[in-house]
Computed example of a mutant assay.
Amino acid sequence: MNRLNLHLVSDSTGETLEMIAKAALAQFDDPDVSRHFWPMVRSLQHLDRIVPDLAAHPGLVFHTLVNPETRKRLEEHCRHLGLPAVPVLDQVTAALEAQLGQEAHGRPGRQHMMDEDYFKRVEAIQYTIAHDDGIGYEEWEEADIVLVGVSRSSKTPTSIYLANRGFKTANIPLVVESPPPPALYGLRHPLIVGLTTSPERLVQIRRNRLLSLNEATETAYVDNDRVKAELQFARRMFGDNGWPVIDVTRRSIEETAAAIIRLAQERDRKPASEGGVGKPI
């Protein structure tokens, strides 16, 4: 199979376009793709400057240009070069226009405007960084989500991902010899979620962590029986408190976060008397 040159042309940061391309490419088996990324293309002059690269590396052009003038110019260049140009958001925007009964604004970078959601994300990121790894228990009640799990169960990266989605997230490590502060069990506002994984996967991750730090890999930290006991301790705690549990063994960070967000949304729709369940998701 020949290598595909994929040109991503955006009039904003290109984050949306990159995510769409990544999601679409994930449906193929190891595609040989060379990505050419062109963000912040907001003028005809800027657009014209990338044409030589389009000609030198012919392939597929994805774009999210909303300005009619620059969009038309790109399509003209692509026709001249014989390249397919795909406006990836057109069908979604058209469907929304039909259902909402109004036309899209067509302003570049509108999704990145510093609106209320933007400042909510900034606040969430600041809170999450300040409450990583069990820090600041006095302020856990302010969290939207609290993640609980043993060491190396993806708590921190999942917390950061959730923060970028606007959720204030604290994470708390579970250590058999050092139980978490009593404050954890009295929380009312946050959704508390337990993260678990398979013992084999956890040992592997911990060994890799120790190797990266040039530390000895034969310690209680990676002992199979000890790791199983840690996970059993965590599961008992999750069950005793009725916290929902997510098994991250075969989940990416994005998939884990999506499951947590779904739990948060479901809880918001339920009466206060209905709690979570302690079964793995």
Rank of each mutant, 00 (worst) to 15 (best):
T128A: 06
R79I: 03
A143Y: 00
I281Q: 08
V203L: 05
P157Q: 03
A264N: 08
Y161Q: 01
Q232H: 15
Q45K: 13
H189P: 10
A56K: 10
Q45H: 13
L211T: 08
T256Y: 01
H7G: 09
D240L: 15
M237A: 11
V150S: 00
G242T: 06
T156H: 00
E15D: 14
L162Y: 03
S273G: 12
I261G: 01
E215K: 14
S198G: 08
L65S: 07
I281P: 02
E200A: 08
P271D: 13
F62K: 05
K22P: 04
A23V: 13
D268E: 13
K279P: 02
P180K: 00
E103N: 12
A183H: 10
R42K: 15
A56T: 07
E255P: 09
D32Y: 09
L174E: 01
G106A: 11
V86D: 03
W38M: 05
Q45A: 13
R110F: 10
A124P: 03
H7W: 08
P271E: 11
A94G: 09
D133R: 01
G82Q: 10
P190S: 15
L89C: 06
A272G: 07
G149C: 02
L187E: 02
L17H: 05
A143S: 01
S252M: 04
N171K: 07
L81I: 07
W243K: 05
Y185T: 04
L211D: 08
D90S: 15
I50M: 05
G82K: 05
D225K: 15
E75I: 08
R269T: 14
P190G: 05
R235L: 15
R35P: 13
